[in-house]
C-alpha cells in the first residue's frame, strides 16, 4: 500500500512515521512529478494558506483534486480539513472543496485557546483529541457521516472516500484513527 503525503508544509513527518509503523509505504508529495500511483492521500496539519498556495504554485492542485474526485481515499487533519471543505465561513479562499461541509478556520481562537479533550469517535471509542488553533465544522450536507463532536461542534466527518478531522491524531501515540484510514483504503498493507 502506497500512501501519498502532502509534504509542502506542516506536520507531515508525524503522519509518515505512524503509517510506516502500520506497515504502509509513504511517498512525500512536494511537487507535481512526485504524484504517481498512490492508494491513499494524507493532507496534514500546518497552515492552510501556505499549503493551498503551494499546491497551486507547484502544480499539484489539479492532479490531486482529480484523484480525490475519482475516489482516492483521503485523510485530512486540521489545515487539511480546510483544504477539503466546500465552504469556509471566514476565509474567501476555497481549495479542493470536495467535502460538502462548512468549516470555520481558527474557530476556537488563537493559541491560548488550543486544548486537549477526550471524546467519542464513532467506530473507535474514546479518543484523546488535540486541537491547535483548530477549525470546527459548522454544518454538513445530510449525506456526510458525523464521527465526532466536542461541545456540540462537529470535529470529525466521513464522506465517501474522504475522512476529515479538526484535530491532530498525528501528535499522540494513539494510532487507531490512522488504522481506520488504512481500513478505509480497503486492503491490507504488505508487511516490510
Amino acid at each position: 500500500m502506497k500512501i501519498g503525503v502532502l509534504c509542502v508544509q506542516g506536520a507531515f513527518i508525524e503522519h509518515i512515521k505512524i503509517f510506516e509503523k502500520l506497515g504502509a509505504d509513504c511517498i512525500c508529495l512536494r511537487q507535481k512529478s512526485d504524484i504517481t500511483h498512490i492508494d491513499g492521500l494524507v493532507l496534514p496539519g500546518g497552515e492552510s494558506t501556505t499549503q493551498g498556495k503551494l499546491l497551486h504554485e507547484l502544480n499539484m492542485f489539479e492532479p490531486l483534486k482529480e484523484k480525490i474526485i475519482n475516489g482516492l481515499p483521503v485523510f485530512a487533519t486540521c489545515a487539511g480539513l480546510i483544504l477539503l471543505s466546500e465552504k469556509l465561513t471566514n476565509d474567501t479562499n476555497i481549495y479542493f472543496g470536495t467535502l460538502p461541509i462548512t468549516t470555520k478556520r481558527n474557530a476556537y481562537g488563537r493559541q491560548s485557546d488550543s486544548f486537549q479533550t477526550t471524546a467519542h469517535f464513532k467506530g473507535i471509542g474514546n479518543y484523546l483529541m488535540t486541537f491547535i488553533r483548530a477549525p470546527y465544522i459548522e454544518s454538513t450536507d445530510s449525506s456526510v457521516d458525523v464521527l465526532a463532536t466536542v461541545n456540540n461542534k462537529i470535529v470529525a466527518v466521513k464522506y465517501k472516500n474522504q475522512l476529515g478531522l479538526a484535530f491532530h491524531p498525528e501528535l499522540g501515540d494513539d494510532i487507531r484513527i490512522h488504522q481506520y484510514f488504512i481500513d478505509m483504503i480497503g486492503h491490507k498493507p504488505l508487511p516490510h
Partner: peptide, 18 residues
C-alpha cells in the same frame, strides 16, 4: 503536560515553513 503538547505541537505545525 497537555499544555506542553499544545505548545510544542504548534511548532510542529510550522515545520517546513518560513
Amino acid at each position: 503536560k497537555s499544555q506542553n503538547i499544545l505548545n510544542r505541537g504548534l511548532a510542529q505545525m510550522l515545520k517546513g515553513g518560513v
